[in-house]
C-alpha cells in the first residue's frame, strides 16, 4: 500500500539494504530489500513496568 517511501528511512532505521546493479544496458534494474523495526513495544513495557513496580496498585 505505501511501501515505496520507506527508502527514505534507510539511514534512520536499523535496516540492511542490499543493492545490486546489472550491466548498464536497457533497462537498468534495481533490486532493493528493506526491513524496518519499531521499538514501540519496548516503550509500553517500560511504562507498564514502572506502573506495576512503583504504584501501590499491585
Amino acid at each position: 500500500m505505501k511501501p515505496v517511501w520507506i527508502v527514505a528511512l534507510l539511514p534512520l532505521v536499523a535496516c540492511t539494504p542490499r543493492i545490486a546493479l546489472d550491466a548498464p544496458k536497457d533497462p537498468i534494474t534495481i533490486n532493493l530489500n528493506v526491513k524496518i523495526d519499531h521499538e514501540i513495544r519496548l516503550k509500553v513495557e517500560k511504562d507498564v513496568d514502572s506502573l506495576t513496580k512503583d504504584s501501590k496498585l499491585y
Binding site: 514501540i40 509500553v44 511504562d47 507498564v48 513496568d49 506502573l51 506495576t52 513496580k53 496498585l57
Partner: peptide, 30 residues
C-alpha cells in the same frame, strides 16, 4: 488501574486492552 492503563495507552498509541493484558502478565509474574 484502568485510568493508569488508559494514560499509558494514549501516550504509546496502544489500545487499553493491550496495555491491560501486558500489565496482567507482569502482575501475575510479580
Amino acid at each position: 488501574r484502568r485510568a493508569a492503563y488508559e494514560a499509558i495507552a494514549k501516550k504509546n498509541g496502544a489500545t487499553l486492552d493491550q496495555v491491560a493484558v501486558l500489565a496482567g502478565q507482569k502482575a501475575i509474574e510479580m
